[in-house]
Design a protein around this nucleic acid. Structure first.
Length: 380
RNA sequence: GGGCAGAUGGCCGAGUGGUUAAAGGCGACAGACUGUAAAUCUGUUCUCUCACGAGUACGUAGGUUCGAACCCUACUCUGCCCA
């Protein structure tokens, strides 16, 4: 079937590097810039697939190799005919490789040249993740876009460690490409590997990594190892550096970012794809992102606020339910609260990137972004 | 009418002579969360003070003691049992 293609539709003028584009996959199109809801274990927590389509307007969602490998396991996923059929999501899917778990499960793993020995967070059992096994697992999951197996070094990292880690990520990348070339697509559509730039917070390493990654001429390129605790300005600095060094005719994916203002800034720097747990996790913890600003819905001030959750957002639930009711749901630990907050936040994120796209297309991105930043950062 | 048990901070509940403004839980009030080990985690929660610190507080009133939430007496209230 068709290859993954990227059509660059517009680029902002002046200092802005923002662009609008269209990614075509065998499961449909993705209009960029885009935010991708995270559905680690094959489920965007607390949100149904119907809600993702109708309320959130999600175009592509994520899954995670490490988590899906542990549960339900590749046998079940293959039996289902891949993750799309398993979770009934017929639009594009991207799977992260487990590289982030090398970082977040640091206490339970050991990194070697061959790969990473993981101890399952579920039952403590030991598993080896190698570039080859991770490609095989992602073949079984069947995502449209699959990520290279990388090491995401912590911040801060010593130069020597960052350099060695980057080298390892690059060698693993070669093995990922090789394995992918050696194995067929399983479900009749094409899977595309995105390599990941590393190099921690060292400019020469980041440049070298970008050069190496770009030389692979992959369908799209990702920037990893950022938003792991470094100052926000530093994250922007390295995003700018990497975005400038990665090819402009391929989508650029900034992994794990971020807040609404992070996303606006990074769109400005030339990023096309984002993912982050923030809208869902923070939503479940009572933090709402709205077109008016940020709300902690558990705060007493909302107890008798009968205005809509977010009057400025087109999503139905944002209009239909009130802040006071949503607060009540949170205080009462009603599950519906988790669902409404998650949908609100995701719908807001998708609205935000959609608006950004509109303003890039009609060449008004820069002034719109400036106004939007102030609103979106505001604490209500 | 008699017997027994009990009364602790918004609530539940530990404490039975000094290191107790009083454990713990709940509730309440804030904060954190960035390729998800997260419907999670952290902090505050008698009054006054930015703080140091001071003042009040373990049913009520009195007493013993250098010192009492803790011991004694009376009273009030609550629960259970017997009439």
């Amino acid at each position: 079937m068709a290859a993954l293609t990227f059509e660059l539709q517009a680029t902002a003028t002046g200092d802005s590097k923002a662009r609008a584009g269209r990614i075509s996959t065998d499961h449909g199109e993705i209009m960029t810039p885009i935010f991708m809801p995270v559905g680690t274990v094959g489920s965007v927590k607390a949100v149904t697939q119907q809600q993702l389509k109708l309320d959130v307007q999600a175009q592509i969602i994520l899954g995670n190799t490490y988590h899906l490998y542990l549960r339900p396991g590749t046998e079940v996923l293959q039996g289902a005919g891949g993750l799309h059929r398993f979770n009934s999501w017929d639009r594009p899917i991207l799977t992260d490789s487990g590289g982030y778990q090398v970082f977040s499960l640091a206490a339970n793993r050991k990194i070697k040249e061959e790969g990473v020995m993981f101890q399952s967070h579920i039952d403590g059992s030991r598993h080896l993740f190698s570039p080859e096994s991770v490609m095989d697992i992602q073949r079984s999951i069947g995502a449209d876009i699959i990520m290279a197996f990388d090491e995401c070094p912590p911040y801060p990292s010593e130069y020597d460690y960052a350099k060695k880690s980057m080298g390892l990520t690059h060698r693993w990348l070669d093995r990922c490409f090789q394995r992918l070339a050696d194995t067929p697509d399983k479900y009749g559509y094409t899977q595309h590997l995105f390599p990941i730039v590393q190099g921690s917070t060292y400019k020469d390493l980041r440049r070298a990594s970008c050069e190496y990654i770009a030389s692979k001429e992959a369908a799209g390129n990702a920037i990893g190892g950022l938003s792991v605790g470094e100052p926000e300005e530093m994250m922007y600095e390295f995003t700018a550096l990497c975005a400038a060094d990665l090819p402009s005719h391929k989508p650029r994916y900034l992994m794990g970012v971020g807040t609404p203002w992070n996303i606006l800034e990074c769109i400005d720097l030339g990023i096309d794809m984002f993912d982050c747990v923030m809208p869902t996790r923070n939503g479940r913890n009572g933090m709402l992102f709205t077109t008016q600003g940020v709300i902690n819905i558990r705060n007493k001030k909302w107890a008798s606020d009968f205005s809509a959750i977010d009057p400025g957002l087109p999503a139905e639930i944002s209009q239909y339910y009130t802040k006071a009711y949503l607060r009540h749901l949170f205080i009462s630990e009603e599950l519906l609260g988790l669902q409404l907050a998650s949908i609100q936040n995701l719908a807001f994120y998708l609205w935000l990137v959609g608006e950004a796209r509109k303003h890039i297309l009609d060449n008004s991105f820069v002034s719109w972004k400036r106004e939007m930043l102030d609103i979106v950062k505001q604490r209500l």
